[in-house]
Design a protein around this nucleic acid. Structure first.
Length: 466
RNA sequence: GCUCCCUUCGUCUAGUGGCCUAGGACACCGCCCUCUCAAGGCGGGAACACGAGUUCGAGUCUCGUAGGGAGCGCCA
């Protein structure tokens, strides 16, 4: 049987980092085993689901490159099917109508808690066989087995055993006419032929109930893999108040999609000592059965390191479109000035994110607006600066406009004036950027463009003399 | 409260009874390289939650304790 996995977010917000990892693992598992990855939108909560959220999730998945083989299928379009299955359960005596109000249920729960028991429904209507009545409180409840235990072999957690006595008769159809989560997932996963349910471990507790529904429906039970949570740096639950949790926020912060994927795949999973995984390698090596059981913390610094590794090793041309997106976001008009790919080459050893890179790239796309006075005093107003700048002006006016040629010119100046590189590069750097920090001097000059470089040299000469 | 789950350096992890004097990576510190900043190279400190057992031998198996997490909805 071919493997089929699914990612089933509920569209109540953007795609967050934990959801992205779940989607990645589902996707990888399907890819490696030549199966299908399907996307399902669990939008039966009519109060909280929005179209904007659906779009946000789809956009984030597209940016990450996690393309679905099928779907999205929307649960709201399958209402008829859920009703049909519920009717069947009713007809077979495996489900029943119950009429308690929400208040009565609440009271039941409190009473149970007071007795030190687990808050559960008492099964009042279970075997009562009362005639159907139209009642605003009418729900359909599933007849959970009273005895025995549910056992399943979780691919990450291992063997999990659950006494049926711990479970109550859950509502499968709400009084508003919509199915509940635990029922809809099972019906969908059966209809969609899902063989591997990979999801967050906040669902382990639901699994025994769902397995009982599979049994009641006479359907084969899929394999389960429950992934541990991702915590924040402090070991707390990720919250949008204190952390970046949305995938698209990571894009805005300048991270590359494959760097994020690489970080996520290593969070809770490993392959020996390997840290860097291309998407192809992930597909070949990842196995959800190797995922760790314990929760892990999200470490932005390691993500940043990984991001830089990709910045350094990727083809600058391939990075250029995403970088251009960041330039635009930083308010930079890149229609004039250096080619984005050239800027990437100059800056990729020096920044961790594309956002930072765009910030630093400003000096080549617009005139120097701010001069670091200390830099000017130290490197421009000294006895050799004017000579260096003058020589540079002369040589750069005529040399070939390539980093290598510029490098040669700088060396020529050093030789001619019998000065060390420090005495040459620093005044030039201040002239080009207004500061004493920039990439190597040849690239810094090169990226300014000949015309602009000469203009900045003249400005600096004027400042040196002032 | 009840049920289920988890526990190796600060963090991500390797480790499946002897190869562990516990390895790698991020972060941190030091040195080297150097036109600034980086990047890179080399080196350093840093962990098996605790307690019993099983065993010739335990990070690895069992039990207990402590700590953490999840669930107990007509949310998903």
């Amino acid at each position: 049987m071919t493997v089929r996995t699914r990612f089933a977010p509920s569209p109540t917000g953007f795609l967050h980092i934990g959801g992205a990892r779940t989607a990645l693992y589902c996707w990888l598992e399907a890819r490696r085993r030549g199966g299908a990855f399907v996307l399902r939108i669990e939008d039966t909560d009519r109060e909280r689901s929005t179209d904007a959220a659906v779009k946000a999730i789809l956009d984030a998945m597209a940016w990450l490159g996690l393309n679905a083989d099928e779907g999205p299928v929307y649960q709201t379009e399958r209402l008829g099917r859920y009703k049909e299955v519920a009717e069947r359960l009713l007809a077979e005596g495996k489900a029943y109508y119950a009429y308690e109000s929400k208040e009565e249920i609440e009271a039941m729960r409190e009473a149970a808690m007071a007795k030190g028991e687990k808050p559960r429904y008492n099964g009042y209507y279970r075997d009562r066989n009362e005639p159907y009545r139209d009642d605003p409180n009418r729900v359909i409840r599933f007849k959970n087995p009273l005895e025995g235990a549910v056992v399943f072999e979780d691919k990450v957690k291992g063997r999990v055993e659950w006494a049926n006595a711990e479970l109550d008769d859950l509502v499968i159809f709400r009084s508003d006419g919509w199915p509940t989560y635990n029922f809809a997932v099972v019906v969908d996963d059966i209809d969609m032929g899902i063989t591997e349910v990979i999801r967050g471990d906040d669902h382990v507790n639901n699994t025994p109930r769902q397995i009982n529904i599979y049994h009641a429906l006479g359907a084969p039970v899929p394999e389960f893999a429950h992934l541990p949570m991702i915590l924040d740096k402090e070991g707390k639950k990720l919250s949008k108040r204190t952390n970046s949790v949305s995938v698209m926020e990571y894009r805005e912060d300048g991270f590359l999609p494959h760097a994020l994927l690489n970080y996520l795949v290593r969070l809770g999973w490993s392959h020996g000592d390997q840290e860097i995984f291309s998407v192809e390698e992930m597909i070949r090596l990842f196995d959800v059965a190797d995922v760790n059981k314990a929760a892990s913390r999200f470490d932005t610094e390691k993500l940043a390191w990984l991001n830089q590794q990709y910045l350094k090793s990727d083809d600058p041309q391939a990075l250029a479109p995403e970088f251009a997106w960041h330039l635009a976001r930083a308010g930079i008009d890149a229609s004039h000035g250096p080619a984005p790919a050239d800027v990437i080459v100059a800056l990729r050893d020096r920044v961790h994110t594309l956002k930072e890179m765009a910030e630093r790239a400003k000096i080549w796309y617009s005139p120097i607006v701010e001069w670091d006075e200390k830099a000017v005093a130290k490197h421009l107003k000294n006895e050799t600066a004017a000579a260096v700048l003058g020589e540079a002006r002369a040589l750069l006016a005529g040399c070939e406009w390539k980093p290598e040629a510029i490098h040669q010119a700088v060396e020529q100046i050093a030789a001619k004036l019998a000065l060390g590189m420090g005495k040459i590069a620093q005044p030039l750097r201040v002239a080009m950027t207004g500061t004493q920090v920039s990439p190597s001097i040849d690239h810094t000059v090169y990226l300014a463009g000949r015309e602009e470089a000469l203009k900045r040299l003249d400005d600096a000469l004027a400042r040196a003399a002032a």
